[in-house]
Design a protein around this nucleic acid. Structure first.
Length: 404
DNA sequence: TCTGGGGTCCTAGGACCC
DNA sequence: TCTGGGGTCCTAGGACCC
């Protein structure tokens, strides 16, 4: 198999490239930011179609930010300061007070995501989604795909995406998904990198283990304890020793990954396993003192999950909740129903039962609702099973009232 | 001024069944 | 005098990814 890994870069303001920019914080829209900037700079005649003309001093700086948000992504200039994904915005502000802070705008990302994926699919139809800004491609059967080891196709894709969206894109080409993903990071942003099987020792083995997709902070720390730091270090270790130390399955996978082995196909479609909604409160809430606020949030989460299920055409059988306490400890509870459900009252009823099984004395920072064991609505209807939501709405009020 | 939101997959124990 | 054993489902937690 010949695999591509492509990821688009979501920064759309050319004048910000090369500067420390952080995208993150609360849920605001980029439209709102532009509207506010327009208010603040009424004399300046720019439009959304000329994003590159917005002067630098108009963009908000990170230093004015207050709140609990985290960073979604950061430019390389910002990363020089130690700023990175998933870091609290407040912490980033300390590390790099002059950084520009752009709002996260998932609606806009989804829009651009659909566009760039549609463009890619026209060129290379065997495509696997990896979130909003990344895809895998199998270009084995794409005509002309093998020219210059895939470089011609990579350039074609980059140009097509840029012409339509103005977004740049990094591409990695390799014999499998594991290596293509690593290759895509070699020349970011807007680059192309090709890794051949014979490049394994020179290009892959010197990299830290953490670069392997699937080795996270915990595994990295445990590997380091055994003096394994690079992928090359890992490749030298005995397969059976790895299996004994890291578990049969994970140890074997580590050994394969270090040797560049990966036979996962590019999966064009996959059914969701669960659908959930969760929210972190602006301030920690107490189950007794803030009962009404929590109750309203809980109801809204159930309604949002129900709306997501209906919009996407699924029913679910396992209803769960997630709580995060003020010390960041998370707990989950779930319950599998006898019948699949899809509507908010039934979800709220079951989720309310789950709430009764957790400690509600401690302050909470997050509440979430999840529906799993999903089934396509049409398959479920084909079985002739009928939803039983009658009467649940009436029960819900009293059950819920007992919990918060 | 710590630590979002939406997912997947794995593990491990207990229940239950044959 | 006993402590089989495999398969599946359910539940809770945790690692990891984007």
């Amino acid at each position: 198999m010949d695999a591509f890994y492509a990821s688009v870069e979501l920064l759309r303001y050319p004048q910000l490239k090369g500067l420390p920019v952080v995208i993150g914080g609360g849920r605001r829209r980029e439209d709102d930011m532009l509207a506010r900037l327009r208010l603040e700079q009424p004399d300046y005649a720019w439009s959304e179609h000329k994003l590159n003309e917005i002067p630098l001093d108009v963009f908000p700086r990170i230093s004015g930010y207050t709140g609990r948000g985290v960073i979604t992504t950061a430019t390389y200039a910002a990363r020089q300061f130690g700023v990175g994904s998933a870091m609290g915005v407040m912490k980033a502000a300390k590390l790099c007070p002059d950084a520009i802070l752009l709002p996260v705008d998932f609606d806009q990302y989804r829009h651009y995501s659909q566009r760039f994926k549609a463009i890619i699919r026209e060129i290379a139809p065997v495509m696997e989604n990896r979130g909003v800004d990344e895809v895998y491609l199998d270009f084995t059967d794409v005509p002309g795909g093998q020219r210059e080891d895939g470089r011609v196709l990579a350039r074609l894709i980059q140009k097509a995406i840029y012409d339509d969206t103005g977004l740049t894109c990094s591409v990695g080409v390799a014999p499998n998904k594991l290596l293509a993903k690593m290759a895509s990071e070699f020349n970011k942003p807007n680059g192309i990198a090709i890794v051949q099987p014979e490049d394994l020792q020179t290009m892959i083995w010197p990299l830290p283990c953490r670069k392997v997709n699937g080795i996270g902070p915990k595994a990295e720390a445990k590997l380091a304890q055994h003096d394994i730091h690079t992928i090359g270090d890992l490749a030298q270790r005995d397969r059976l020793w790895l299996m004994a130390t890291f578990g049969k399955s994970y140890g074997a996978w580590l050994h394969d990954a270090a040797h560049g082995k990966d036979d996962r196909p590019v999966a064009m479609s996959s059914e969701p396993v669960s659908i959930s909604r969760e929210t972190t409160f602006a301030h920690d809430l107490h189950a007794v003192r803030d009962r009404e606020a929590l109750s309203a949030i809980f109801t809204r989460l159930c309604e949002q999950v129900a709306a997501d299920l209906q919009r996407k055409g699924y029913v679910g059988k396992t209803i769960g909740i997630k709580l995060r306490y003020d010390n960041f400890q998370s707990v989950t509870r779930d319950q599998t129903l006898e019948r699949h459900v899809q509507h908010a009252p039934a979800i709220r009823q079951a989720a309310g039962q789950c709430l009764k099984r957790v400690d509600l004395q401690r302050r909470l920072r997050l509440l979430g609702v999840r529906v799993g064991s999903l089934m396509k609505l049409e398959d479920w209807q084909a079985q002739g099973v009928r939803a039983d939501t009658s009467g649940l709405a009436a029960q819900t009020e009293s059950l819920f009232g007992d919990n918060f």
